[in-house]
Nucleic acid binder design. Structure first.
Lengths: 138, 138
DNA sequence: CTGGGTGCAAAATCTTTGCAGATCC
DNA sequence: GGATCTGCAAAGATTTTGCACCCAG
């Protein structure tokens, strides 16, 4: 039982999806990608968006981010970096700070049985716009 | 338009859910909680589980964890701590290392417009059992 | 009493998948 | 030609919600 590895063909839609996420430099949901591409790709379907997003992640041409609200989001910035999410509006931005590679090493030494591959850091809080709607946060 | 804040009553189901998550000391899904309580609470429904989990999180008596595979998981351990998730089987364990409070301060100084409240760290990798199923991971 | 809590089932989300035809190599 | 890609619609999986009734305060 050897797992079949497909040799992907070239696909206009797949490239369009990748380009779209790259150009936006944002953390887009499948729905946003679909809506954004629809004008120029009227025959695009959600099934195709999902199928291609999975392939692009598998090919390491996109990274998937998992959040609380709603579904996954996709990021074309491949170097490790941290994120900051607003708990009110859900907006996600990149954090401009060095990645702490030593964390992986530290945990590796303390938990040898687990093969650590990477880590993610997510900061939680309120973006500037949303702070105005939340008064007394103790 | 002032948001209505309910004064929660006492509820056998809510306490049972909280006790169950506390006793298991694990990171349980709604489904697992439902299945685990069903024997002793035959009239419990999934709707009630979800409604109470939201309330317990709002009351800060549980924390919700968000992962890629499937839905949220719930944790009764309230002090900040980090997690380690196996990308193959999805198992989640606590990481025994001090929390880096200074990260919040650091990012606060570099992104004044965002009100940082906390951060989470998630390590990714393979648990010991799953390393045996994955050979050549480059 | 009044407002919260619950079961139940329907609805709402979000994502996956089967299939037939089109496309790539 | 054979594997991959696609639209479409149906099916899955997960979570929310409307409603009538029950229960706590």
């Amino acid at each position: 039982m050897t797992t079949h590895v497909p040799r992907y063909h070239r696909s206009t839609h797949r490239e369009a999806i990748l380009d779209f996420v790259r150009d936006r430099r944002a953390h887009l949901s499948a729905e946003e990608i679909y809506a954004g591409l629809r004008p120029n790709h009227p025959r695009l379907s959600m099934g195709t968006v999902y199928r291609n997003l999975h392939i692009l992640v598998e090919q390491q041409r996109l990274h998937a981010l998992h959040f609380s609200n709603g579904g996954d989001r996709y990021d074309a910035r491949l170097e490790p970096h941290y994120h900051l999410a607003c708990r009110r509006c859900g907006d996600v931005v990149d954090v401009d700070m060095p990645v702490l590679d030593q964390l992986d090493t530290f945990v590796r030494d303390h938990r040898g049985s687990f093969r650590i591959e990477s880590h993610t850091v997510l900061f939680h809080g309120l973006c500037f716009a949303c702070t105005q709607f939340e008064r007394d946060v103790d």
